[in-house]
Amino acid sequence: MAARLTLEHVNLRFGGVKVLEDVGFEVQPGEVFGLVGPNGAGKTSLFNCISGHYRPSSGSIRIDEQEVLATAPWRLSRLGLARTFQHPALQLHATVLENVMLGAHPRLRGGPVSWSLRVPPTGKDERSLRADALELLDRFGLGWAAMRTPDEMSHGLHKGIELCRAMLLQPRLLLLDEPAAGLPHSEVDGFIDQVRRMRSDFDITIVIVEHHMGLISALTDRVVVLDHGRKLMEGTASQAQADARVIEAYIGKDAADDAA
């Protein structure tokens, strides 16, 4: 079942530097939600707080009603959270299928000892994961590449592999960090289609950090705009693009005054 994500008064500091200040919003189950803002706005830092890679200085982050502030990433994966990264971290000389399966260890019963000994339940789980991974690769148009290695494939295909790896966790909440970064226009269109299919085929909540406003406009129900670590506005993508504060944050006050 798709998860609700709630942030309240999230603050993040590195030494004396304020990275995030009093950020809060709520993402409803099943929404596609955008997190946008200029470079240095704090978007990826906020993602890292949600996914457990950073520990906020204060505040609350909840998945449904469970507080997850400063929870380890592996524990969050068991609660149904998965994420992708701007630069996919793939094992370039392993097969695509192996790369997809690498992300699904939380679905295996037992622990490292039983996994290494390959006790019968582990073998059964691995066969199930392999079947699910192949099905996902087929669903996202990558079935042909299952036994190939990523080192002979494009950056756009790497993004697709990472997306399949995240989806193999069967997440209820998926965080996508700049999925369009480095993609040509034709591949951005293909990614938009993929996310639309995910939304129709899976019961999932999706949060996207992205600069590509065409993608944000095409996919999201609502967005939050950050600027210098603070929430600037919340609304639809079209409302954000028409908001004078957002225009000023993206292009600068002098340029906004000149445009006016």
Rank of each mutant, 00 (worst) to 15 (best):
V113G: 00
M198A: 12
A89R: 15
R4W: 04
A255T: 12
A242L: 15
L81H: 03
K43M: 09
R230A: 14
F33G: 00
G16H: 01
V207F: 05
P29E: 06
E248Q: 14
G80C: 04
A41H: 08
G111I: 00
C49A: 05
G123R: 13
F25L: 05
G59S: 05
G235W: 03
H53S: 10
D258L: 11
Q91W: 11
E210S: 09
V113S: 04
A218S: 10
A260T: 07
G37A: 05
S238G: 04
V17D: 10
L174I: 09
P29H: 05
Q91G: 13
G80Q: 02
R13P: 00
E234H: 02
G80V: 01
L134Y: 06
Q86W: 01
I192C: 10
R199H: 08
I192Q: 05
H185K: 13
H212S: 10
V36A: 10
A181Y: 03
S77W: 00
D125W: 07
G80Y: 01
P171Q: 08
I192R: 08
N11H: 13
V209K: 04
N11F: 13
R62A: 01
C49W: 04
R118N: 12
V224T: 03
F202Q: 06
V19Y: 03
R118K: 15
P121N: 12
M167Y: 03
E152A: 14
L117H: 11
R55C: 09
E26Y: 03
D64R: 02
V27P: 01
D138M: 05
I63N: 01
